[in-house]
């Protein structure tokens, strides 16, 4: 887990990094992404422009494994806008491992009908510009997205992230009571908040499920909170 202290320096870091990289970035999707400022740290909770994102991958290693599909949906003013939802299967090289197919249920046939990685990442960056990325368990999404950017543009931009797992973990840690790490899984947390069962392991579905979880988590927090208290 990344050390998030001191917070202030962290965010200045994001904006400062963005501005620095903007100068070096090549023309194209990455430059477009970097040219939109991130929301400031003091943005109140319900005003943060958020994009909930989920990836399905062939494994956990961002270098060896492949990105299979991307799903995302916007969360603005505490409302998840289904009209903004995006879901795309990626036509990755190499055939799928059988045991993974059972998890994400993307078959070779579907994958072949997918779009090239470059187009999908371009779409994602376009949607992500100026927003905070929302994920559950940030490691996968951050690493795969960084890796894809490195491959495509030769550099990886900063991504301000809210992680629903970390939001839950910080709360449990504060209570100073032992807990089972499995309590932090998306399904378990949704159940805890009485959210409906959802069809898991579809990228868009999980993105929506994560956004719903954040709404539930935020509903019990003070309205005076700002981005500062939530960001990774």
């Amino acid at each position: 887990m990344l050390n998030h202290h001191p917070l202030t320096r962290w965010l200045f870091g994001y904006e400062a990094q963005r501005k620095r990289m903007l100068k070096r970035a090549p023309e194209g999707p990455l430059r477009d992404f970097l040219s939109v400022p991130f929301p400031p740290l003091y943005t109140p909770l319900n005003c943060i422009p958020i994009l909930a994102v989920d990836f399905e991958t062939t494994g956990l290693d961002a270098v060896q494994d492949k990105l299979l599909s991307v799903g995302c949906v916007e969360l603005n003013f505490n409302q998840i806008k289904l009209g903004s939802s995006y879901h795309q299967i990626i036509n990755a090289k190499g055939s799928l491992k059988a045991n993974n197919v059972t998890i994400h249920q993307i078959t070779d046939d579907q994958k072949d009908q997918g779009q090239p990685l470059a187009e999908v990442i371009e779409q994602l960056l376009k949607r992500l510009a100026g927003k905070v990325m929302l994920v559950h368990f940030a490691r996968i999404e951050r690493q795969f997205l960084r890796q894809a950017c490195l491959e495509l543009y030769g550099m990886a931009p900063p991504f301000p992230i809210i992680d629903t797992l970390v939001v839950a973990k910080r709360r449990l840690d504060k209570r100073d009571v032992a807990y089972d790490p499995s309590e932090l899984r998306l399904l378990a947390l949704r159940e805890k908040y009485d959210l409906p069962e959802h069809y898991a392991h579809n990228a868009l579905n999980d993105a929506i499920a994560t956004a719903e979880l954040l709404l539930a988590q935020l509903s019990e927090r003070s309205k005076d909170l700002s981005l500062q208290q939530l960001i990774l």
Partner: peptide, 11 residues
């Protein structure tokens, strides 16, 4: 109709 949906959470 589904595209018109905004999901909200009311405590």
């Amino acid at each position: 109709v589904v595209k018109e949906i905004s999901i909200c959470y009311v405590r």
